[in-house]
Design a protein around this nucleic acid. Sequence first.
DNA 1: ACCGAACCGAGAGCACTGCTCTTGACACTC
DNA 2: GAGTGTCAAGAGCAGTGCTCTCGGTTCGGT
Lengths: 236, 236
Amino acid sequence: MNAGRTARERARAELTREITEVARRQLGTEGAGGLNLRAIARELGMVSSAIYRYFPSRDDLLTALIIDAYNAVGEAVERADAAREPDDHAGRWRAVCHAVRDWALAHPHEYALIYGSPVPGYHAPADTVAPAMRDTVVYGRILASAHAAGALTPPDGFPAPPASFSGDAEAVRQVMPGLPDDLVARAIAAWTGLFGFVSFELFGQFANVVDDRAALFAHTVDTLGRLVGLPAAATG
Amino acid sequence: MNAGRTARERARAELTREITEVARRQLGTEGAGGLNLRAIARELGMVSSAIYRYFPSRDDLLTALIIDAYNAVGEAVERADAAREPDDHAGRWRAVCHAVRDWALAHPHEYALIYGSPVPGYHAPADTVAPAMRDTVVYGRILASAHAAGALTPPDGFPAPPASFSGDAEAVRQVMPGLPDDLVARAIAAWTGLFGFVSFELFGQFANVVDDRAALFAHTVDTLGRLVGLPAAATG
DNA sequence: ACCGAACCGAGAGCACTGCTCTTGACACTC
DNA sequence: GAGTGTCAAGAGCAGTGCTCTCGGTTCGGT
């Protein structure tokens, strides 16, 4: 997309990219909130006010980083999913979950930026919602395809969702078409459970409690997958 | 604990309390990171440097607030648990989960402070670990007592945790004695799932997706409770 | 080829932050 | 009552996000 246009525009695009790059590195060492326009400018050998030619405010820079982060985790998830055989639904689920955790462990501050507490005073603009959905879409696709293939055999003995849930279930079915209400509810529980685990691990809630987090995570993923009806013991 | 001592010491304790109180209110409107020593001083009619007589740094004030928040949620959970009949394990589980969510919804910024992304540059001192355990201890006590009463009938068809998990399970059994490894693993999944749900709800991940969050939460709590073996349909 | 307009970086400056240091007044202890 | 430790106040430092103005460069239309 960078091909044509004037020299000025190419320089602008290049500098914009450099700014976000330095900002992302600064985010990696300092965390959000420690994001420092003047330090970015210093590292780029320019003056702080020049940054404002490219980002009208600190929040706009943050928004760019948030979108990047959503896209990064979304891409990681998509790649992990694509690497599996399409009808290996349990394998895809497992791969996707581990992709989320691996990405989070590799980019803790970016994970915190999108799945941690919202930055004070910052309110996400509409541009973020599409990238924010990428991983969820993949997740829904896996379950929908598993359900369509008749590969979901959810364990019973679990309560049914209340009738009032059917409206929300219908909305969620946009990303996982065909699933009945009770499986939609379980899918949400599994999805939030996944991120709950990763957040606990990343934010230090497991300190001095769980040591072999990788093993427990793998087992938790299997348990949550089983909850939505994926087959229990596959090869991996 | 405030009874004796000199007037000076009482004044000091009083002012310390007032500072944390104003800080907590400021936290509620601005969120952490927006916590502003000068504004606190202004509201108290004193000069900013005077604050440093009571808290050596902004981080120490934050630590006090974190401890307060852990204690607040811990107390809410303890109260919810105590209000139920001791052998109504499903009811206690449900009450505890709803207490967590209710408290979080009532104090979103304080929840974010302790269960959201860690504050940049801040590292929790040891004083925080005991208050941080209060809710977990209650949770473990419920499951342990349910297990001891033979009230846990976990659904089967779920995978067993790997043998390597037994070490961690032994450690976790300090707060839920008697539970077998597989139930310890499921208990952690349920606990992280609970906070994953609350975090998703509070941090905006459910926006435009789930509408009737209270209903879905109640059902998720029942589902997670069933996962660890609590009876499915009780009166509530 | 030129010329006005748009864009650019530099720099000064504003209001604000956390934090430090010094000063003079007060309260408590002996 | 003298001496000592504690206190709030104030000035000040280094740093922040952001605004505005200033010359220089580049672009697009004529």
